[in-house]
Design a protein around this nucleic acid. Sequence first.
RNA 1: GCGCGUGUAGCUCAGCUGGAUAGAGCGACGGCCUCCUAAGCCGUAGGCCGCAGGUUCGAAUCCUGCCACGCGCGCCA
Length: 664
Amino acid sequence: MILQLHAALRERIRTRLVELYGLDAAGVPDIAIQYPPNRDLGDLAVTVAFELARILRKAPRVIAQELADALGPLDGVARAAATPAGYLNIHLDRAAHLRRVLGGPRAAPPGGDSEKTIVEHTAINPNKAAHIGHLRNAALGDTLVRLLRFRDCPVETQNYIDDTGVQVADIIVGFQQLEDRTPEQIRELAGQPRFDYYCWDLYARVTAWYEADNGRLAARARMLRDLEHGGNANAATARFVADRIVRLHLATMDRLNVEYDLLSWEGDILRLDFWATAFDVLKAAGAVTYQPDGPQAGCWVMPIDPEAGADAAGDAEARWKVIVRSDGTVTYVGKDIAYQLWKFGLLDKDFQYGPHGSQRSGRPLWTTRQDAPDDPGEIPPAPRFGHARAVYNVIDTRQSYLQQLLKQSLAAIGHATEAERSFHYSYEMVALSHATARALGYDTSAESDRPFVEVSGRRGQGVKADDLLDRMVAAARAEVRARNAELPAEAADRTAAMIATAAVRYFMVKYTRNKVIAFDIDEALSFEGESGPYLQYAAVRAGNILGKLQARDGTDEAAITAALEALPAEALAEAGGSDLWALVLEASRLDEIAEQAVRTLELSVLAKYAFGLAQAFNTFYHRYPVIAEERRDVRLWRAAAVVHVRRQLTRALELMGCEVPARM
RNA sequence: GCGCGUGUAGCUCAGCUGGAUAGAGCGACGGCCUCCUAAGCCGUAGGCCGCAGGUUCGAAUCCUGCCACGCGCGCCA
């Protein structure tokens, strides 16, 4: 909405600078557009006069004044004014702006990324229930997906399933060694509800079992070999168990409005020999070399670029990363290289595909397979997966070093462009506040000097995602019932679910990504202040005003929009002056904020923006009545502002995966 | 040791590529429901922006050094 105006203004100023001062186009500095501290000063502020002062040897004030005089008429701009300090302040045509945003079609977003982008997120080990750390990953990943789509970029969302790793191996070892279960018994257990909770505890028991006797790790090694090799009973059981848990994870994510396009199974990458192909490429490019002797004898290794930032000082050996172990198995980095090559369409191999259940929105979910489906006639043709122009991997910051290696290896085999378009979307972990850790019964004495308590999934510590959601839904339901006694139970439950989702998602997105979240259960359960429900509440109130307006005399949004054309602009000043205008202008900035969020990968700016908009609306709501306003033109201008704010706030919430209930 | 990140109000955090009087939430204190939902609004108190230099017309923001804390540096993922 506002970006078009920014672009037109920049272009005009650039033109005038060339005309006024004889600058060549390349010599014009970037024209930064800011927002003055209050609307009476102006609506947009240009600081280019400061930049040019030195080059032109003129006072900023003089340059700003000359620009203001020469600017000329521009659609949407009422006037330009230079300040003594040297700012060039732009005042917009308020009435025209409101008429345009209400009546016009949605402005085409700038973006320009018309080619496919892949976003990989969630990627929870399928051996136990999801916890709050996974919620941060999914909330960030899904919001990124929605932001990219908002900018009209086609996005493919992938969820990587590590079904052949250590964690799944440990669970199967646990079933066999600790519980003496047959494959049939395991399958039966896996069909039970909350099977992921059962595995959560079992995993902790297995960890303790290993710790009691290191020799037991041999069982893990044997299991891991079975899983990687495939084609045996253990591998079949593991895939079954993993599939059950993945379905439970998907159900958890569904509660948060998170959906995917494709599940990518590591087992399929292995069995389809993606790695073998990638290995040939790496060898041919000389990116990996064989170590005949030394501590890494028998391994294929890759040199670590010092810029990857993790070479151990002094140790020459440690500057080489093992890709293929001396026993011939491939490390995680190797598998990831093969997968990343496939994402870009650079691997001369592909998966088989099949449908994997339905998702709430109707968006089809596909899964990779090793074999073609038995009866392909029943199945719609799979889309063309992979072949992306850019790839975002949403993984916490502890894997920065590995992601750097991944990028480096792409460059090393001659894919510099793809290396540039491989983005590690890193974020910090979720720990627990001391109060919450104590409430859960964890011993925090060892970490008493730290601001937070880090928990261990291996030891069965942490807050399960579904437990958190259950508590939030219960708390929200109590509130909804207290406020809306006449609401049927089913509607109250739906509303409570929407509120819980918004509370969780907003909580996970509001922090900047490189901040450790010290998760506090009481804080998360609070629906007041800077929270998802606060935003929903503002949108609900806006909806109520419009609903009542329509119920009273049939004035709906279309009628409001139509009426604006004939309304005198003077009445707009009486309707709320700069207060109303500040709200309207702020609401128009969503496209600019979305752009900034994607450019910087800092999604918290979206959360902060939406909160600020809700705050501004609530203030307006208390100060300026709409329904009760007797003057028709004033009432309609205010109603128009409400329509605009409600639309934009609803869109902002949608981008964060949050819905707006009818009542709350 | 090396690399990355963080240090802003009592607590939890914003502060975008340097720009107009350093903000928000929670907590504290004081107000506002015959008025579009009080999950709300208004007001008060509270800040050597870790420390020291430097660059600049201008620094919480950029550079250097130091201090504190976190994470990473596996033939784990």
